[in-house]
């Protein structure tokens, strides 16, 4: 149906990778709905081209440029930047109904049946089940709703500083009124449930239709070894207890997305068998250019010290480049006699 669409949002090149995997997984499971992605100006030009290969519509949202009420809202509440971008999805009135999905989600089977649900349908949040998680939700685009949301954002803000708080305040009857608007948890299975309720995960995890990689470590932050087809990582990381989903994410990325990135010259040629080192290197360089959401899209500027530190803390030190020990040594030698 042409008037229904899946919608996602990418605010930088790292999240584009997530969006691409999401779009690719939807296609793989033969959705008949449209695919739409909202992007911000931080997404680089080559990445936009790649997005166009996967998505039917790529829409640039620039809250600062809009000059409308959203801009005004942002002036009052600058901390709500990304949230206000996300609210733009209500402006897609070319569609009668949409399913919004975060870029850090991935579908495991066809979920077109979600379009039978009404606004606002969503799955409970694992941290506070009386709130819904705004990673996956069904809604009807409407300028009226959009304006009401903006108004609420301006007047009251969001209790958690993000879109989830705002939407839960707005659709506050979700928890109690209509059970039909409660999507089963398998439509938004967050990786947290692995360690918060492992037995349930073992019993029902295999039915999952959508996984949501919550938390600071996103799938693209891990290192994937294409020889063993598995994630390399610290076993103390609780999500590594069941790395199947991460491996699945990476498998999709390597098979469907990486060739596209190569075609557009974002990643060096790796057609003759994918070498893990090259891929991870290329990928970490990509996240390098994407680490700064406020920087102009392309070319990536020299990183600030703070950004470099942040990257170390993500386990993504550029050990073959700026962070090599020779550079560390030079730093040390400035104060050693």
């Amino acid at each position: 149906m042409a008037d229904q669409s899946f919608v996602t949002l990418a605010t930088n090149d790292s999240y584009v990778k997530g969006a691409l995997v999401l779009g690719s997984s939807l296609q793989h499971h033969r959705t008949i709905k449209k695919l739409t992605v909202l992007i911000t100006p931080q997404v680089s030009a080559p990445m936009r081209k790649v997005l166009e290969k996967v998505f039917d519509e790529v829409l640039l949202v620039d809250v600062l440029d809009s000059g409308d009420s959203a801009h005004l809202a942002l002036m009052k509440r600058p901390e709500l930047g990304v949230t206000l971008t996300k609210l733009h999805c209500w402006e897609l009135t070319q569609y009668s109904k949409c399913v919004f999905m975060d870029a850090d989600t991935m579908v495991l089977s066809n979920i077109d049946e979600l379009f039978e649900k009404e606004e606002l349908s969503a799955a409970p949040d694992p941290g506070w089940p009386d709130c819904f998680n705004s990673g996956v939700f069904v809604y009807r685009p409407s300028i009226e709703t959009y304006n009401h949301l903006l108004q609420l954002a301006t007047e009251k803000g969001s209790f958690d500083g993000g879109d989830q708080g705002l939407l839960n305040t707005f659709f506050s009857s979700w928890a109690t009124t209509d059970i039909n608007k409660h999507l089963p948890f398998i439509y938004n299975l967050s990786s947290i449930s692995l360690y918060s309720y492992l037995p349930a995960f073992k019993a029902f995890g295999s039915n999952a239709k959508v996984v949501h990689f919550l938390g600071r470590m996103k799938p693209w932050n891990y290192t994937y070894d294409s020889k063993t087809k598995s994630i390399r990582g610290d076993t103390s990381d609780p999500t590594m207890v069941h790395p199947e989903f991460l491996n699945m994410w990476w498998h999709t990325f390597i098979t469907n997305i990486l060739p596209l990135l190569e075609q557009h010259g974002i990643v060096k040629d790796a057609t003759t068998g994918v070498k893990a080192e090259e891929v991870t290197e290329a990928v970490s360089h990509m996240s390098l250019s994407a680490a700064a959401p406020t920087s102009p899209p392309c070319p990536p500027p020299a990183e600030s010290s703070e950004e470099r530190k942040e990257r170390w803390e993500q386990g993504q030190a550029d050990y073959m480049g700026a962070d090599s020990f020779d550079n560390i040594k030079k730093k040390l030698d400035t104060y050693l006699q």
Binding site: R216, M217, D234, S236, D237, S305, R308, K309, E310, R311, W312, E313, Q314, G315, A317, D323, N327, I328, K331, L332
Partner: peptide, 18 residues
């Protein structure tokens, strides 16, 4: 202290390495 250590030697410490 992470900031001070960064200033001292430009080494950052991943948050997941307890």
């Amino acid at each position: 202290w992470k900031g001070e250590f960064w200033d001292a030697c430009n080494i950052g410490i991943p948050f997941n390495d307890r």
